[in-house]
Design a binder for these strands. Structure first.
Lengths: 332, 332
DNA sequence: GTGAAAGCGCTAACAA
DNA sequence: TTGTTAGCGCTTTCAC
């Protein structure tokens, strides 16, 4: 319709790789408009071997909870915002712990993805099978939350649970607390382990005894948290402070403490972990450890884009650990 | 390597459209294994014009909140679980209200998607521009939360806010309440309007006056909810019950009421809306209206798959309204 | 039951 | 600056 070859149309659309005269360019643009023409992404992808798509593989234990964690939403937000700005699309894919890697292998090796961001809830070697499948996709991959085994050479954006819990616990010790409890999460998740470890290290750093009775809870369920708190309160010498492994657990603890007539923080101090939206909204506002979830998504997007641009380069293969920070509010 | 033509390989991989002899089949399968061969999705997509991908377009007012609403996560879960089971992938795309439709047009008309699920927060005609862009993709589309204008002929999975709020308010009236307040959400969202309307209709159904002073709040922010509750309590004749437009608002109200020394439900009854995870976890447990978010995602997935299978058929073009239900718990 | 070959819509190397 | 054309990797028609 513009009276030119397909090559020129391509040059116009892509601004290259060869120049076009302004008048031809104009004619082509008008024809495109008139015909309501849109390039087919699959044909282009087939030709240039780029799909403009990044996969977000979210690994978790339960298919119905993959996207429900407070993390996922923020991470997804950071990721999509950044990728959209660079004309990349996001394909989300739930991957269940223990699932046959062949399931995700189908997506991974189909050539649909230019890059991959994978949320890991465990540390190596538990994630090796999944990462092995990902490595066969032969595209840049950035792990978030936890890093993968070094041999894969993937980038990672993590945060330091251990240090966060250490800071929270140390803060309580400085404030004069000597019997500090930990309300732990599901230890299958590395973050739960890290938070427990940070708590324990803070105690030992200050020469405080590690009383096993002061560590309660072993999953993320509210009911477990409730009974854990109850057990703490029934101890011969109850704790004067609690470090919870998540804000959610802390909220439940807060409820339970109040219900039993304890004032927070006067009778018992409480610190959460994550700094979810709600933390600043309850009364008293929850003292907690801020984890920069949205930044993680953003940073992961940036890194994976670098990896894609680099064509097998390795500048992106760093392990970035974002700082976590104790936010002092009303509960400790 | 298997000593056969590419045609036969294709027949083996796709189980058709022509038969293959068992021995050849076996040879091909072994070669596939040995070569670690995986079909390229883009080449196949180019040829058969199917991408095995469904787009989830999430419309909202703020780029940073698109995926943070309690709805998004559940919807995404329902959607991905169902689509994964049918070998379809999900591409998520944030669409901002008022944004140039050309932005999403790029994705929509690129031929990447076999079908579309779009979350709408407004009613027609506000969504016409977005749906116009979607209709140019020429693929089945299912709206969720709110339906689009009839002329587009898209399917929809919705739920009845009006009726939910009506049920909640009516319940309070039956329990003897006569001064019932409504803590409203951001009226730019149709659900906020629907919930307000349901509340008002329930009052008028029972011949109760509609006191404008009893309707407070006009966004989803906690701070607004707090000041709204405060205003209610300072009224010459304060309400004895509050119907909130969301669980989040209700939680804030619950906090604020307690803070001011009111017992819930003894002094003031409270009903939320959504039945988010937390509703059953606070003490007292929140009485609320259950909205089956995950089902919505699941149902939308099923419908869009029907639309894709139907090849322009119209069986999927129904508007499904899922029931909402008052869940009696501890706050009313 | 199998092979040869066309062609999906695009890009880019090569030729002019 | 533009046109011609090969070919990305697959499916499927047509011939055998």
């Amino acid at each position: 319709m513009a009276g030119v070859s397909t090559a020129v149309v391509s040059y116009v659309i892509n601004n290259g790789p060869r120049p076009t005269s302004p008048e031809v360019r104009e004619r082509v643009l008008q024809a495109i408009q008139a015909l309501d023409y849109y390039p087919n992404a699959f044909a282009r992808g087939l030709r240039v071997r780029r799909t403009n798509t990044v996969g977000l593989i979210v690994n978790d234990y339960n298919a119905l909870e993959v996207f429900l964690s407070p993390y996922s939403a923020s991470i997804l937000t950071g990721l999509t915002v950044q990728l959209k700005a660079h004309n990349y699309y996001v394909m989300v894919y739930p991957s269940i712990v223990g699932e046959d890697p062949e399931v995700s292998g189908q997506l991974l090796r189909s050539g649909r993805l230019d890059g991959i961001v994978v949320r890991l809830v465990q540390d190596p070697p538990a994630t090796d099978a999944l990462l092995e499948a990902i490595s066969e996709a032969n595209v840049p991959c950035v792990c978030i939350e936890r890093a993968g085994a070094a041999r894969f050479g993937f980038g990672a954006v993590t945060f330091d649970d251990e240090q966060g819990a250490h800071a929270a616990t140390s803060y309580l010790i400085e404030r004069g607390h000597r019997r500090i409890a930990h309300l732990s999460g599901d230890r299958r998740y590395s973050i739960a382990q890290g938070r427990l470890a940070g708590y324990q290290r803070a105690l030992s750093d200050r020469g405080l005894p590690a009383d096993p009775a002061l560590v309660v809870g072993d999953d993320w369920a509210p009911i477990t948290a409730r009974s854990g708190v109850k057990r703490l309160l029934e101890l011969p010498v109850p704790p004067t402070a609690i470090v919870a492994a998540s804000d959610h657990l802390a909220f439940v603890a807060l409820e339970e403490l109040r219900l039993r007539g304890y004032r927070v923080p006067e009778d018992i101090a409480l610190i959460g972990f994550d700094d979810t939206d709600l933390a600043a909204q309850v009364q008293p506002q929850l003292t907690t450890v801020h984890v920069p979830m949205m930044d993680i998504g953003l940073r992961a997007a940036t890194m994976v884009l670098e990896g894609i641009a680099d064509e097998g380069g390795s500048a992106y293969r760093q392990i970035v650990t974002l700082p976590v920070e104790l936010i002092r509010r009303g509960t400790a």
